[in-house]
């Protein structure tokens, strides 16, 4: 009987992993940003094991989907490797910080930080879809030195897109913090990586998302070993989520290459904002700043995230209309 229950529990976690993998892959945030909230809020897994399992599945996501992307020659390996200098350093700092957090039982900080990271990831993710093409910019000195140019074939536009990256140094600074968050929260920090490449370095959205997916694995591998020796990885959970998230990521990367980002984005933003508010509330509750029952937390999170998404949608639509008029 226990064997059957354990098997069912295992399949249940795999299913959660598949959902997290699809959402993570399509948004470019990585499976971890969705997996950790699902495991902690709905499966009752302690955040220490959830982040450990998430790191492992993040490598699987990255490897699984990067295989698909690099085959289509969209990801820029050179730019990715150059930026990994900062993310791997950040990952070491982050995962060492986390050992201190657990030593002093400050888990609530991680919940709160997690919520904030998800919520602040949403706006850059929304903006990402705005620039399907590339903005024409003047190359700066880093474009030449670090060879920040490339091209890829866009399946939707049916043409080859050429691009030039700028401000390599600013990209590196942002990547350090992306790596640190990755080590702290067991996520790939896809949003910050995208911010670094899209906003700071002016790379096209498709290149940004795919290169980020390729980089995430290297960052996560750096933190994983430190997590391993600290005992933050629980085999049963890590095995189930690695399988689930990988399946989800493969499905997600197939979806991503076929659809234009605009169609599905809002569904994912709604889910993400709900998970973000829930995590932040849980952090405040665990830090004993507020007292809430699980059900209250659920309703409050639904209301706050609904308001958030509706207002973002309105702001975005108005912005889009003004953009068309000009």
């Amino acid at each position: 009987m226990t064997e059957v229950m354990t098997l069912l529990k295992f399949i249940e976690i795999v299913a959660g992993g598949i959902i997290a993998g699809i959402i993570g892959s399509v948004t470019g945030l990585g499976g971890g940003s969705v997996l950790v909230p699902i495991l902690t809020l709905f499966y009752g897994v302690p955040i220490i094991f959830a982040t450990g399992a998430s790191l492992i599945s993040t490598i699987a996501t990255s490897a699984g989907s990067a295989g698909t992307y690099t085959k289509k020659k969209i990801a820029n390996v050179k730019i990715g490797v150059g930026l990994e200098v900062a993310t791997t350093l950040g990952a070491i700092v982050g995962s060492l910080t986390v050992t201190v957090v657990y030593k002093y039982s400050l888990e609530w900080v991680l919940y709160l930080l997690f919520g904030i990271v998800i919520l602040t990831s949403i706006v850059p993710t929304i903006n990402r879809g705005k620039y399907e093409g590339t903005k024409v910019v003047k190359p700066d000195f880093t474009s030449r030195i670090f060879q920040l140019q490339g091209k890829y074939y866009d399946q939707n536009q049916k043409k080859s897109v050429e691009y030039i990256g700028i401000r390599w140094w600013l990209g590196e600074i942002i990547m350090f913090f992306a790596g640190m968050l990755s080590g702290l929260l067991g996520i790939g920090s896809g949003a910050l990586k995208v911010l670094g490449m899209d906003w700071a370095m002016n790379l096209p959205m498709k290149v940004t998302t795919t290169t980020s997916n390729f980089m995430i694995g290297i960052t996560a591998a750096t933190s994983s070993s430190i997590y391993w020796y600290n005992g933050f990885i629980q085999f049963y959970l890590a095995a189930a989520t690695a399988i689930g998230v990988l399946i989800g990521a493969i499905i997600g990367s197939k979806i991503l290459l076929k659809i234009s980002n605009k169609d599905v984005r809002w569904v994912f933003f709604a889910i993400l904002s709900y998970l973000g508010v829930e995590m932040a509330l849980e952090g405040l509750r665990k830090g004993t700043f507020i007292s809430l029952s699980g059900l209250d937390r659920f309703y409050i999170a639904i209301v706050i995230s609904a308001i958030l998404i509706v207002s973002l949608y309105v702001i975005f639509r108005i912005g889009e209309r003004n953009g068309q008029r000009q």
Binding site: V81, T88, N230
Partner: peptide, 21 residues
């Protein structure tokens, strides 16, 4: 230049895996 950059990344990774952990 990229030999150097990727060597730094590799060093970070191996230090984390074989020493810090």
């Amino acid at each position: 230049l990229y030999v150097l950059l990727s060597a730094i990344v590799l060093t970070n990774l191996t230090v984390a895996i074989f020493y810090i952990g």
